[in-house]
Design a protein around this nucleic acid. Structure first.
Lengths: 206, 206
DNA sequence: ACCGTAGCACTAACAGTTAGTTTATCGAAA
DNA sequence: TTTCGATAAACTAACTGTTAGTGCTACGGT
């Protein structure tokens, strides 16, 4: 593992970044749908195939730095302080992510995303991946030992919190409100004593 | 408005159904990715443009009957018995949906869907719509009066339950497990006012 | 019987994406 | 240094989903 780089990898990274920057500039100037892949490739002075060797799809040009999100979420679980409860750690991370993507500097980008169905759909499919990664991290935590179902469920809830808060009028408050619900849902999975198929919390008792 | 048919609408419906049946047959025979739109159109003996006038996208050929899902979910909220609590009604509906799509007869179709990233992504984006519709129905219920955020959150959680249960080894049990979590999350939103009929049977006494 | 509408077809194209193939540059072993 | 394998990047050329544009025909209401 050569952590320092060779010239080759530096050039590759430079090409990738040049493509991404050019694409974002054109998208913001003329609108996402009005810019074609061939436009981006020409402006970045690379071949179309080269562009696709760096980015799997047109939409990926917009979500260039979202690879780190997946890792950060998983790390919020795996790298948290010993004995620190799960949900507050996740809440802190989601808070940070929401703050990051509702910053003023990111506003034009998100306006563009919200205006394009293709981009919104792509974002949602990314979140699916994130939820699965996060679910795996939660399931793997030896201090928690949740049901596989419970782990994946909490993971999806957390991702939902991110998605919903991003669109809420007061994103930070929304995160807190949703995480109260998540906390409660999580507590239910912590009680093994709740006998099997009970309809305890349903009607039956009116 | 003639609610009974004209010949025209009958023919249109027949064309639509013929396209859908042909598409499904070809997809199951040769695989989704191996069949092109032009193949389907030719085999159904219609023009490509005709096909697209009936279905918005190739993926929509597979999810032909999923328009009703959206309505059924919303109706599970709006049409439920007076004073019936929200969550059990939704759980019943999700149970029915999961049972329906894990039936043996539907197995090949879902195997095909699971094998195709494009179809999975399309399904996710459908679920997003479903969640928004459901959230609106919950928010509009005068007997509940939840926060807008809470309504949309519960809606997404319910859709998550459907998605997760569909893939679980024991789908019915998964629905129950997840709905215990949802019930608990919902109760949190009931705490402050805690007036009418949404049960004194939550925890607090466990 | 007439006319407007709407379903459908056809051609042609556009946009994203993917082979298949080739060149040139780099990293390191000889 | 020289050589050699690997790989980034190029180019060509297509394939696939999707959409305009246009016109014909048949249906349905009057």
């Amino acid at each position: 593992m050569t952590v320092p780089t060779g010239r080759r990898e530096r050039k590759k990274a430079a090409t990738r970044q040049k493509i991404a920057e050019t694409a974002m500039r054109l998208f913001l100037e003329r609108g996402y749908d009005a810019v074609g892949i061939r436009d981006v490739a020409a402006e970045a002075d690379v071949a179309v195939t080269t562009l696709f060797s760096h980015f799997a799809a047109k939409e990926a040009l917009v979500f260039e730095q979202d690879e780190g999100f997946e890792q950060r979420l998983a790390q919020a679980v795996t790298d948290r302080a010993p004995h620190e409860p799960l949900i507050p750690a996740l809440r802190r991370e989601i808070h940070a992510l929401v703050r990051h993507c509702t910053a003023d500097s990111a506003a034009p980008v998100w306006r563009m995303i919200d205006a394009s169905p293709a981009l919104r759909e792509y974002e949602e499919s990314m979140r699916l991946r994130h939820a699965e990664t996060l679910g795996a991290a939660i399931a793997a935590d030896p201090g928690l030992a949740p049901t596989p179902i419970a782990a994946r469920t909490i993971a999806r809830f957390v991702i939902d919190a991110y998605a919903l808060a991003r669109e809420a009028p007061d994103p930070q408050a929304a995160v807190d409100e949703i995480f109260q619900m998540i906390e409660s849902a999580w507590q239910v999975t912590r009680r093994p004593g709740d006998h099997d198929h009970d309809r305890d919390s349903d009607r039956d008792r009116a």
